[in-house]
Nucleic acid binder design. Structure first.
Lengths: 209, 209
DNA sequence: CAAAATTTTGACCGGTTGGACAAACGTTAG
DNA sequence: CTAACGTTTGTCCAACCGGTCAAAATTTTG
């Protein structure tokens, strides 16, 4: 026996992965209700009944996807640690989050879609697991403030602002590219963003001197 | 003659307003494809065929809503002006944007939904009107930097970061409230956010001295 | 009031969607 | 070979959805 997970053959493992990959693509661009099983099946290269053999219901796919997502999505925050220089620690958190926006934009959009629509499927997780994690890290940050290592401010809103600014480059990618135009909207935009965010979070906008 | 707008009776004016208000509610929480005409009709207190008498197609409602939205949505940025102190000017831009997130969260979410899904209906506007406006304001900001009034950084990404941090409180409201909990997630959260953002954008996180 | 114009409704339609199901197909072990 | 098991597919269905239409109800106008 290996826990309560249903026993699965090799083919089931592979096909389920295939479906989840396809579903991530479809759900993240069309939202849950905006996506059809047919779309996902086609993207996964199989027929609809075949897909339904691996996931009985559309919701099951979404739920599985969401559960996996949350682990990787919160990993950077989990890594935020009390060892090392606070400013460096925060800087690398911001960098990691920005890299995730660059490398996993579909995951970011899937998450954004869910939250935008009121988080009907993950609200308990937000109020439980997520809140605990953030509270814990907020305490760490507060310690840094008390020690005079970083400026005193609201740790929760600080975390929000890091989430907002970094995920913006995944969720609002179309707008970012449109506004930057062809010349500046290329691959370099993430490096520009990284430079800007580093400066913003460290020094703000007041002129030096 | 009053332009090319179709002539409308008093009832048409009122009912169209009613429908748009209902549609804003429905579209902003379910997205375009996730919303049905029946839902909007019910929210507006009328039958589906009756609604379709005022707007021939579902898309027409969304289009009308989007056109109105964009004007008010970009108003704060349009007001960003070269007169007055740059830091004050930016501070009040941030404040205005945050107030909009507080007072018009549905509009923010409607917009976010559209962008998230690739902005299929407003991409031309983003590449045209929006880009022009942002470029124009970026030039203003660049002037401030050259004059030594604010720190040198990337004006475009600065604008993005203001959008991201303020709209976050509308688009991710469920998450913000869940993480802050019952005690801190009340009405005061916008004032906390305003204080935090002011400090972030002006001074960053480096400790004083 | 009565005619004309506008508004509202019930019934209906074709297409789509999530999902069920049994039959067919393939694979593997004895 | 063949029985057992896992996989795939074609067909079908009921619910839903966007939209039409003609007729009824209401309001406006002369």
């Amino acid at each position: 026996m290996e826990g309560s997970a249903p026993r699965r053959t090799r083919i089931q493992q592979e096909k389920r992965e295939l479906i989840l990959e396809a579903a991530l693509e479809v759900f993240s661009t069309n939202g849950f209700r905006g996506s059809t099983i047919d779309q996902i099946a086609e993207a996964a290269g199989m027929s609809k009944p075949n897909l339904l053999y691996y996931f009985r219901r559309k919701e099951d796919i979404h739920e599985t996807l969401m559960q996996r997502l949350l682990d990787t999505w919160l990993a950077p925050l989990r890594e935020l640690d009390d060892i090392g220089d606070p400013l460096t620690e925060l800087r690398s958190y911001i960098r990691r989050k920005l890299e995730m926006a660059r490398d996993f934009p579909r995951e970011s959009r899937l998450f954004a879609n869910e939250i935008l629509q009121g988080a009907p499927r993950i609200k308990p997780m937000l109020e439980g697991e997520l809140k605990s994690l953030v509270d814990e890290k907020a305490a760490v940050i507060k310690g840094w403030m008390r020690a005079g290592k970083i400026a005193r401010t609201d740790p929760w809103h600080l975390i929000f602002s890091i989430w907002a600014t970094t995920q913006h480059y995944a969720d609002f990618d179309v707008q970012v590219r449109a506004v930057l135009g062809e010349d500046r909207g290329g691959d370099g935009r993430f490096e520009d963003a990284a430079r800007f965010l580093e400066q913003l979070f460290l020094d703000g906008l007041k002129p030096k001197g």
